[in-house]
């Protein structure tokens, strides 16, 4: 799952020098993910994984890093 998220984020949303060196805990917001990027990311996730991410959970802490994103998605995939 992280590979797919990674590809989408670094190919479509933000440009970083070496995506390979961007760790799963590095800060996506600092790297340039903005409100429009978050919106596109959420639409991508909902389509790709068939989950519905609740409106009230869209906040910086859940989109801060690849690990945070994955955990957020998994919480909703199970439930």
């Amino acid at each position: 799952m992280k590979k797919k998220l990674r590809d989408f984020i670094f190919q479509e949303l933000i440009f970083v020098a070496e995506p390979g060196q961007f760790s799963d805990d590095d800060d996506l917001l600092e790297a340039g993910l903005d409100s429009m990027g978050i919106m596109r990311l959420i639409m991508f996730i909902e389509n790709e994984y068939g989950v519905t991410l609740p409106d009230t959970e869209i906040e910086p802490s859940n989109v801060q890093s690849l690990n945070a994103l994955e955990q957020w998605i998994l919480r909703h995939k199970k439930g």
Binding site: L29, D34, S35, I38, D55, T56, I58, E59, P60, V63
Partner: peptide, 9 residues
């Protein structure tokens, strides 16, 4: 400004 990252907030 931080609210733009969280539409429900």
């Amino acid at each position: 400004a931080s609210l733009t990252l969280s539409p429900s907030r």
